[in-house]
Nucleic acid binder design. Structure first.
Length: 467
RNA sequence: UCCUCCUUAGCUCAGUUGGUUAGAGCAUCUGACUGUUAAUCAGAGGGCCGCUGGUUCAAGUCCAGCAGGGGGAGCCA
């Protein structure tokens, strides 16, 4: 019993031995009601667990007008005795002694039915979809993964650092940005040459929502050694795919004294640890998702935990792709970025396990990546997963001032805006590395859902900011 | 942003070479049933066939534009 005077349905179902025979109080939402003149069965769910508890109602003992209001979607308080179930299908059930209606749900217009709905329809009623089995499971797993991330880093000596959501830099190089301004969009102040006068804006200069906390996280790593960020990230790309959001959550660890190999070791151990946590703590929800959406989900998760990720260089990957005999829509050539079909071939057909690719051509990677001695490649690393492709992107960072500076010049990155970033290489620089994990892509993988819009409560995508 | 497919009842979908009154399952409502498990059985109500225009004697069906959605690609996490 918690301090709101209720028993969680999870406790009653999971520890039923200690509750059988007791008077209990449950509060929750009706999933179904069925029965006849004499007896009614209510399936009640409070979100504490995917399973419903069955409430048995001796119809003669209740006001007919109250029972009429017990419809799918209504919210109830039920007081009764927990007993071993007389029927098969559940171990225990509650014999109702009183029922209080907290909130009715007009069955004629309540959109959720007890039968299955498509994901597309549920997205249109995102305010109600947490009440479905699927979204309850996804949201509980999402919570568990967020917790497991903090736990993993805390257990391993990392410090959680809060990087800014509003940034004055538009040179982070990770995609189009959302402008943040208090200027009047219809009539902004102009300078003499007609350009918008950002001196009059809130911050006195143009600002945007962050596309990455990495550069600031590096500043933290240059003092606390091991840090990570976990926060919202915004990309104004017109991306319409099941793997992209305009607003998503990203985890970015940054480690002083780590080189590319330690970076890979951490990424692999981190991912395995999170998946193991899901298997150990979310099994009921995973079983449901496995049954309803993806019959190989649990087996796939277990196999990831027990396999060594394949590690190879970009150059070696291109060799494999050129010799494999597979017909690709786009030919492979050293120097151009791998296409999705190439990555999928490596992960799903050639190696049949997660793959970490490293040492990419410098021209297809960001300015801050550590340059190799060959003058052609940089120490970037992408972790590729089955079904979803790139789940992690990271690198060892270039810590030598001159090399970083010249690369910025070559790639047109503003040293004026990133003067503070450059100064970390001027004062006590150190080898370091880090990576970014897309939180929703992790949740996609762990839940077996197929569209990223279905693993975040309120997805933001081009032309959609409802709710 | 590009390619492609889709849009018919509250939901999921049928709807023939263009042809007269628009179909099913589920949901809802009414009734039956003494323990149901996505209960079952009987009956009823429920439609701007996405929107706009065009072709035709006749359009849910063919054509064009627009809107929304799915899948694939690119950008990436």
């Amino acid at each position: 019993m918690d301090h709101f005077g209720r028993n969680k349905i999870k406790d009653l179902l999971k520890s039923h031995e200690s509750f059988v025979g007791n008077n209990v109080i449950v509060k929750g939402w009706v999933r179904t009601k069925r029965g006849n003149k004499n007896v009614a069965f209510i399936a009640l769910n409070d979100g504490s667990i995917i399973h419903n508890i069955q409430v048995v109602v001796d119809v003669q003992n209740f006001d007919e007008n109250i029972l009429k209001l017990v419809t799918t979607g209504a919210c109830l308080k039920v007081h009764g005795k927990l007993v071993e179930s007389a029927g098969s299908g559940q171990k225990v059930e509650i014999v109702a002694e009183s029922i209080e209606i907290y909130g009715t749900a007009d069955a004629e217009i309540y959109p959720l039915q007890k039968k299955g709905h498509t994901m597309e329809f549920l997205r249109e009623i995102a305010h109600l979809r947490p009440r479905t089995n699927t979204f309850g499971a996804v949201l509980r797993i999402r919570h568990a993964m967020a917790f497991a991330i903090h736990k993993y880093f805390n257990d391993n000596g990392f410090y959680y650092i809060h990087t800014p959501v509003i940034t004055g830099s538009d040179a982070e190089g990770a995609g189009a940005m959302f402008r943040v301004t208090t200027l009047d969009a219809a009539n902004p102040p102009k300078k003499e040459d007609g350009a918008i006068d950002f001196v009059q804006d809130f911050f006195g200069k143009p600002t945007n929502l962050t596309v990455s906390g990495q550069l600031e996280a590096e500043l933290g790593a240059m003092a606390l050694s091991l840090v990570y960020t976990f926060g919202p990230t915004f990309r104004a790309e017109n991306s319409n795919t099941p793997r992209h959001l305009a607003e998503f959550w990203m985890i970015e660890p940054e480690m002083a004294f780590y080189e590319i190999t330690e970076n890979m070791d951490l990424a692999e151990d981190f991912l395995k640890s999170l998946i193991r946590y899901a298997l150990e703590n979310c099994y009921d929800d995973l079983e449901f998702l496995n049954e309803m959406y993806d019959k190989e989900l649990i087996e796939r998760l277990k196999s990831i935990v027990n396999v060594d990720f394949e590690r190879l260089s970009y150059t070696r990957a291109v060799e494999i792709l050129e010799k494999c005999g597979e017909k690709f829509e786009f030919p492979t050539a050293w120097g151009s970025d791998l296409q999705a079909e190439h990555e999928r071939y490596l992960v799903e057909k050639h190696f049949k396990k997660p793959v970490i690719l490293t040492d990419y051509p410098k021209d297809i990677k960001a300015f801050y990546m550590k340059q190799n001695d060959d003058g052609k490649t940089v120490r970037g690393m992408d972790v590729l997963f089955p079904r979803i492709g790139e789940i992690i992107g990271g690198s060892q960072r270039e810590e030598v001032y001159e090399k970083l500076y010249s690369r910025m010049k070559e790639m047109g990155v503003s040293e004026k805006e990133l003067w503070w970033y450059l100064e970390t290489r001027k004062f006590g620089t150190a080898p370091h590395a880090g990576f970014g994990l897309g939180f929703e892509r992790l949740i996609l993988f762990v839940t077996g859902m197929s569209n990223i819009r279905d693993v975040i409560p309120f997805p933001r995508t081009p032309m959609n900011a409802e709710f």
